[in-house]
Design a protein around this nucleic acid. Structure first.
Length: 458
DNA sequence: AGCACA
């Protein structure tokens, strides 16, 4: 007797099953279409589409065997073949008794998305760019990134599955808009599924992971030390490692910059703990220590490239220092520790003020320590503070707990890029467009969501 | 046009 078992299971050899096997389906046939097809014959309890190498096969499982038989019988004698979108599909009993749906976590909606960034330059996509892209759909709580065999991947956590779904639906299969990437970075496609996670564990703010809900999360030590591992960020600019200590160098120092002037300028953004001034390469440099990173970030963003005195004099260049706590040995005219109580803080000498121009910036309308600002100092003007490209920006969310001069709150855009801190969900204005967080140049403030439509895809 | 895992 010839055994049947080795025979390919063709034609009518299959015994009846609640499960029907369909082939020759149109491209990307949906579950809904399968249900439509089977519904006249009974209750479709399960389906599986896009099966097989060509993804043009499918399964339909009925609640009852008789329903499957009814469908097969009907089309066996019908002059009209079964059709989906006008295309003839062929049915037969499946050789399985039930559909096993490998519903993985990737298919179950959740608040965390698994994002695979595809493209030769995928690794050059910074966490900040990802944050920008996904922030368009809601508050992004956390992001972690990692390298797997699948390539460069990220987990993006939203508050709920609905928000995550809207982001997934809009972004899956799209490329990251070119204007968000440095020019030398090639196209990067986003592949998005759901993650099984619901709450990511982020221990540190780093170039690999961020927790935007926790402003006080420490910055990873690894991110602090390696200046060499600076990441290429937006526009190909290096993203520096943030620090609570700023290194300021002063260019075109036509006028003497004193400790007190620096103290005043930098106090506009929060309490200055320590300042140390020193000469380097024939110029003056200073280290300015804040209690926290976010204050330093705000101060750096606001002051970088600006001049202490009008007329292009004493231009500030600011970077993050690798120090986190300055060691001030002695309080003198070059260094000071403002955290030590009862330290006499020398106010600017009247004689000096008479000889020198009035600093153009840095005078807070209200100081963090409650002391009234020296009357001699002109309050910051918006024009002085804002680079032209940023002047059109709208009001920005308040950052951090520091009491900031009201004039600054209104005029200064909070540049959130590279910033480990984001305000908690409650502090976010309801419709902050992603433009809000964009770095100044090349990005315009957009009150609406970015379009990922075909006009942007190229 | 021919049975889904990886």
């Amino acid at each position: 007797m010839a055994s049947v078992s080795s025979q390919p299971q063709f034609r009518y050899t299959q015994p009846p099953s609640k499960v029907l096997h369909l082939r020759n389906l149109p491209w990307e046939c949906t579950e809904e279409e399968l249900i439509e097809l089977g519904k006249p014959f009974g209750k479709v309890v399960n389906t599986k589409c896009n099966v097989g190498a060509n993804r043009n096969q499918a399964f339909i499982e009925f609640a009852d065997l008789n329903q499957a038989i009814a469908m097969i019988s009907y089309y066996a004698s019908s002059s009209e073949p079964a059709q989906v979108r006008g295309k003839t599909v062929y049915l037969q009993y499946s050789n399985r008794q039930e559909i096993v749906n490998n519903k993985t976590a990737a298919d179950v909606p959740g608040n965390v998305l698994l994002v695979t960034i595809e493209g030769a330059d995928a690794r050059l996509v910074s966490i900040d760019v990802l944050h920008l892209v996904f922030s368009a759909f809601g508050f992004v709580h956390k992001i972690t990134t990692f390298e797997k065999t699948a390539g460069f991947q990220a987990l993006v956590q939203f508050s709920d599955a609905e928000t995550a779904t809207s982001a997934k639906d809009a972004l899956d299969g799209r490329i990251i808009p070119r204007y968000l990437l440095p020019e030398n970075v090639g196209p990067c496609t986003l592949r998005i599924t759901y993650s099984g996670h619901s709450d990511l564990s982020v221990k540190f703010q780093s170039h690999r992971s961020r927790d935007y809900t926790n402003p006080y999360l420490p910055v990873a030590q690894s991110a602090m030390e390696g200046s060499g591992q600076a990441v290429v960020g937006l526009d190909g600019k290096r993203i520096e490692t943030e620090s609570n200590v700023l290194l300021a160098s002063i260019e075109n120092m036509q006028y003497a910059v004193t400790l007190d002037v620096l103290h005043m300028v930098f106090s506009a953004f929060g309490p200055v703990q320590k300042i140390a001034m020193f000469d380097k390469n024939g110029g003056l440099q200073a280290l300015i220590q804040y209690p926290d990173i976010q204050t330093a970030v705000v101060a750096k963003e606001a002051l970088e490239g600006h001049c202490i005195y009008d007329g292009g004099f004493c231009k500030l260049h600011i970077s993050y220092s690798r120090h986190t706590d300055l060691s001030i040995k002695v309080n003198n005219d070059r260094s000071r520790d403002y955290t030590i109580p009862n330290t006499p803080v020398v106010t600017p000498q009247p004689s000096l003020l008479g000889q020198h121009p009035v600093p153009m910036m840095g005078a807070p309308t209200q100081q963090y320590n409650g002391a009234p600002p020296p009357a001699q100092y002109t309050p910051i003007s918006e024009q002085t503070m804002l680079p032209p490209s940023q002047a059109a920006w709208g009001a920005a969310p308040q950052v951090g707990p520091q009491s900031m001069p009201q004039s600054m709150l209104q005029s200064m855009p909070m540049q959130m890029h590279n910033n480990a801190y984001m305000p908690p969900p409650g502090a976010m204005p309801p419709q902050v467009g992603p433009g809000m967080h964009y770095p100044s140049h090349s990005m315009q403030s957009t009150p609406t969501l970015p379009s990922y439509g075909s006009d942007r895809i190229q």
